[in-house]
């Protein structure tokens, strides 16, 4: 099962490497990882997506909590939540492909944010599934480059992750 873990940790040098190191050291898998400071500059927030059976995810959560720099951990997938990922895709955009890419981007509510006579860069925001669907919708022969930020997530409603 796929899980989205939100981690609040001290914004200290080396703190991120402890989190990342934990995953490789214990053979846990990381699918995506995003990190940035929060409104409180002494805290960073990491969102990690990982897949594993419940027992493994339970261990991951416990091991994260055990790190001295980690203030809090929640598994967003345990409750209602919103997840978003941003993607930028560069396409060869000449001839008929130019229209095709534009049309598909519109359907997915993406934007073309860079144009040259031969290329487009499409920006798309959504769930990871939606981004995957966009990638599948277009002919890969035109594809030059993809960059995805990884997932950020937040709980719906009153629930918060804070100190």
């Amino acid at each position: 099962m796929r899980h989205i873990l939100s981690v609040l940790l001290e914004n200290e040098p080396g703190a991120l490497s402890r989190v990342v190191g934990l995953f490789s050291q214990r053979n846990f898998n990381i699918e995506t990882l995003t990190v940035a400071a929060t409104d409180d500059p002494t805290l960073s927030r990491i969102t990690i997506t990982t897949t594993g059976v419940d027992k493994v995810v339970e261990q991951i959560t416990k091991q994260l909590n055990k790190l001295v720099d980690v203030v809090k951990v929640v598994d967003l997938t345990e409750g209602d939540h919103i997840e978003r990922e941003l993607m930028m895709v560069k396409y060869k955009a000449t001839g008929a492909a130019r229209d095709e890419i534009k049309r598909t981007a519109d359907i997915f509510r993406g934007q073309i944010i860079d144009i040259t006579p031969t290329t487009y860069v499409v920006q798309l925001v959504g769930s990871s599934k939606k981004l995957d669907a966009f990638m599948e919708a277009l002919d890969t022969s035109q594809l030059i480059e993809v960059v995805r930020t990884g997932v950020s997530g937040i709980a719906r409603g009153e629930k918060t992750l804070s100190v």
Binding site: G14, R18, Q25, V68, D69
Partner: peptide, 14 residues
Amino acid sequence: MIGISRPIVKHSFS
């Protein structure tokens, strides 16, 4: 040293 010792310490400081 912080890097080398990371997986075998409870915590470390620089």
